[in-house]
């Protein structure tokens, strides 16, 4: 499903080169629930951005469904992000001018789905994460946990095969964090591939596989 080969990302800071990722070889098969764990600055978020086609590697490649993403142009990458991947951020990253249901419907907007259809689907998704009574609230009117659930609903709106979550519980209390992990586990049970980045071992324990990272390298 997802495979990285010699994936390397170098940031230049003045004259020094910083290896955010250093020769990372990782394979994730369909239906896995992988937790990538490591201290901050270990490169786990960078790895996630590479897999999520948000960033391009300095060298090496990412294969998604056996397609080398380095060979794709910007529009094709956008299509992968839109159709195959659902992204959940630590900061929720909702569009603050849109209400909950519009935020959830946003990926469908970019897929060209008709307004009535996408709002209907978005409402259903919000109901499924327990926010059926909050559809017309703007992000600012929602708690952190509620915002993260809106973000999860948004990540699911295009029915992606892979859900990528970058510290999804980092900005919510532990109880909400557990609820969010329940949702992710449920999605995994439905057959979706889940990749979660966290530095919380308790969260990582709920995954089917744990990958440790340090200094841009994958630890065995």
């Amino acid at each position: 499903m997802i495979r990285t080969e010699h994936l390397t990302k170098i940031y230049r800071m003045g004259d020094t080169e910083v290896y955010a990722l250093n020769d990372v070889n990782l394979e994730i098969t369909e239906g896995e629930f992988v937790a990538v764990i490591g201290p901050s600055g270990s490169g786990k978020s960078t790895l996630l951005n590479m897999i999520g086609c948000l960033d391009t590697p300095t060298s090496g490649s990412v294969y998604i469904d056996n397609v080398n993403t380095a060979t794709l142009n910007e529009n094709q990458l956008a299509e992968i992000r839109r159709k195959k991947i659902g992204f959940i951020f630590q900061q929720f990253n909702l569009v603050h001018t849109l209400d909950a249901v519009e935020n959830v419907a946003l990926p469908l907007f970019f897929s060209g789905v008709r307004r009535d259809l996408r709002l209907k689907k978005a409402k259903e998704l919000l109901e499924s994460v327990g926010l059926g009574n909050r559809v017309h609230h703007k992000p600012a009117e929602l708690s952190g946990g509620q915002q993260q659930r809106v973000a999860i609903a948004r990540a699911l709106s295009n029915d992606p095969e892979v859900v990528i979550a970058d510290e999804p519980t980092g900005n919510v209390d532990s109880e909400t964090g557990n609820t969010i992990m329940d949702v992710l586990q449920g999605l995994n049970k439905d057959g979706r591939t889940i990749i979660v980045v966290t530095h919380d071992p308790e969260i990582a324990a709920r995954a089917t596989r744990t990958q440790r990272m340090r200094d841009g390298k994958l630890l065995a």
């Binding site: 999520g52 948000l54 910007e74 529009n75 956008a78 299509e79 992000r81 839109r82 159709k83 992204f87 951020f89 990253n93 909702l94 569009v95 946003l106 990926p107 970019f110 897929s111 948004r154 990540a155 295009n158």
Partner: peptide, 8 residues
């Protein structure tokens, strides 16, 4: 964010 969720 728009681009991350698939906007071209």
């Amino acid at each position: 964010v728009m681009k991350a969720i698939g906007a071209k």
